[in-house]
Amino acid sequence: MRAILSTALLWFAAIGCGLMGGIYFAFSTFIMRAFATLDPAQASAAMNAINAVILRSPFMPLFWATTLSALALVVLAAPEWQTTPGRLALAGGLVYLLGMFGCTVAFNVPLNDQLAAASGDAAAWQRYLAEWTRWNHLRTLASTLACAGFVWALVARR
C-alpha cells in the first residue's frame, strides 16, 4: 500500500511541479518583461489584478496540492533515504518546499502585498519588478528541479 501511495504521489507531484514551474517560467521569461515596458501605474495595476484573480483560480488548489504532496513525499521518503528513489524523492520534496513554497511565503507574497499598498508608485513598481522577478526565478528553478527529481525517482523505482 505504501508503494502505491508513494508512486501516486510521485506522479502527482511531478506533474504539479511541472505545471507550477511552467507558470513561474512564463512570468520570469516574458510576462514581467512585458510589464516592464508599460507605464509603472499600468504595470502595477495589471500585476495587482493578476494577484487578485489568481487567488480564486485553479492555480491555488494546484499550488496547495502540489505543496502537500511534496511534504508527504518528504515524510514517506525520509526512512528510505539510503535508496536512490528515496534520496531523489526526498531531495525533490525539500527543494520544492524550500525553493518554491518557502520563497513564495517569505518573499513573493509580501512583495505582492507591498505592491498592492503602493498604489501605482513608480519607484515601488521598479523595486517590485526587480525583487519579485529575482525570487520568481528561484521558484521556477526549484519547481523544475523538483519535477526532475520526482520523475527520476519514478524511473529509479523500476
Rank of each mutant, 00 (worst) to 15 (best):
V95Q: 01
F63Q: 07
A148E: 03
T84I: 15
P40L: 08
V155E: 00
L5A: 15
A65R: 01
N112I: 02
L38Y: 10
V151M: 15
A72K: 06
L19K: 05
A52F: 09
G16V: 11
A49S: 14
P61A: 12
T67I: 01
A70R: 09
I15N: 05
A26D: 05
L68K: 02
A72L: 14
C103A: 13
P110H: 09
G102Q: 06
A117K: 07
L10M: 12
V53G: 11
L9M: 09
A34I: 10
F30I: 00
A122H: 04
P85Y: 11
A116E: 01
L9K: 08
A77I: 08
F63N: 07
P79L: 13
F101G: 00
M20E: 10
M32R: 07
G93F: 05
L38K: 11
W11A: 09
A123Q: 11
F150H: 05
A26N: 10
T83Q: 14
G93I: 02
L141Y: 02
R56P: 03
T83C: 14
A124S: 12
C103K: 04
V75C: 12
S28H: 01
Q126S: 13
A70K: 07
T66S: 07
L62R: 01
W132T: 00
A122T: 05
R127H: 09
A146P: 04
L94G: 09
V53Y: 12
A45Q: 13
Y24S: 09
F101D: 03
A91T: 14
T104M: 03
M100G: 04
R56V: 08
A3V: 13
G92I: 04
T7I: 05
V109Y: 02
R87F: 15
P110F: 12
A52P: 09
A89Q: 09
A122I: 08
L97V: 07
